[in-house]
Design a protein around this nucleic acid. Structure first.
Lengths: 214, 214
DNA sequence: ATAATATTAGAACCTATGTTCTTAATTTAA
DNA sequence: TTAAATTAAGAACATAGGTTCTAATATTAT
């Protein structure tokens, strides 16, 4: 695809600005005036270039019949993630079952979709208390958890301890044999937990932490 | 505000559908055809009703000069924030000047607008190193800073220390007389900094911390 | 340098499209 | 029922605005 000339960039920029500001696209003569082009045919020419480049779509014979393609504009930039509940010290961390998933969301959190790869398998939890301060997660933070068993060494994961019957949020490290795991708090003053691999269920993986301050 | 007639609802619905589908609004005759209205003047009449009701805005003498107000549609759900630079240990934290603001952004970060009250005065910094681990901010985290002098007791702020000629990121506490300040790391093992109020410049306030993990 | 390609200019043409006026039918208010 | 709004029709008008043609000038490639 050819590179756009300065004038063409200018036209495209004006096109988006105008459309954003007014709610409808500019006429060819509007463009001419704004971009200091002296002839409508020149605008037409440059619009054809933009159209061939896939930047815009034009409908012939239609006044202001210009649609800006700009994939970034058309694409949904936001994903809505269900906030399923709270995580507090010691308490089991809620994990969505097939039913909780649809029924329970306390609210929906709007996020830019670049923070979420797979929208379906991600849920949010609000952290209550400073129980996870060791993982640099504060009271009031929101964590995004992706439901997955695939965790790699060092990932921060929501882990269900079968024997202890509770969940924790820790970094997970596997032994060489992969039979044992070390659940490591980020805080060096806290002791890691050592346990058998078959004593744990990985419920998900923390993919993001969001902290909103005053 | 008057209730809309069936026909007016139909016109408004067509208006939004058409605009969504095509990227530009319909002409009056397009509306007439789609809504089975036999005269352009009738469409004009109904558009006037819609305009008085605040549903649309019209620009006179402009073909397809219709903007759909529908507040939910117009409101941008995402804000684009400039990522201005990195913060590393000891180094002065970059603060946007009139010129840096426009020229320097490394990239734009897309955020839901509910995370940003005033889009203009907010910029993002990427944290390099663990120098701010005491404030629960890790290497690689992105912090959002709002440019403001108005900080309240306990706010996390970017503070310029005049004498020391460097910036730090600390929680700020004022003395009763407001002559002195205590700059408090979140980490209890680190000592707070005490200094005169006139030795500091508050450059901004951290409004959010975002941490993306695997 | 020469050819090919990209860009600019201006004008004329034509129709798509908003505007307006008059009249009539409906609906609502009194 | 009668009067007052509201809504609908149709036609004529004026112009906003897309199209097209010819020609000139820059840019880039050979």
């Amino acid at each position: 695809m050819k590179k756009l000339s300065e004038k063409q960039k200018k036209v495209l920029e004006f096109l988006t600005n105008y459309t954003d500001a007014r709610g409808y696209p500019p006429s060819i003569r509007d463009i001419a005036a704004a971009c200091k082009i002296s002839s409508t045919s020149v605008v037409d020419y440059n619009l054809k270039v933009l159209e061939n480049g896939g930047y815009i779509r034009r409908d012939p014979e239609v006044s202001r019949g210009i649609e800006i393609i700009e994939s970034s504009r058309r694409r949904e930039k936001v994903a809505e993630i269900p906030l399923l509940g709270y995580v507090a010290a010691g308490e089991p961390i809620p994990v969505p079952q097939a039913d909780t998933w649809t029924s329970t969301p306390l609210e929906m959190i709007v996020l830019p979709d670049n923070m979420v790869t797979d929208k379906k398998a991600v849920y949010a939890l609000k952290v209550k208390g400073t129980s996870m301060i060791d993982a640099l997660i504060d009271d009031g933070d929101t964590i995004l958890v992706r439901q997955t068993q695939e965790v790699r060494n060092g990932d921060m994961a929501v882990v269900w301890l079968k024997k202890e019957m509770e969940s924790t949020l820790k970094r997970i490290y596997f032994s060489k044999t992969r039979k044992k795991v070390r659940l490591q708090p980020a805080n060096r003053y806290m002791e890691p937990i050592y346990t058998e691999l078959n004593n744990i269920d990985v419920q998900g993986k923390v993919v993001a932490v969001i902290r909103l301050l005053g």
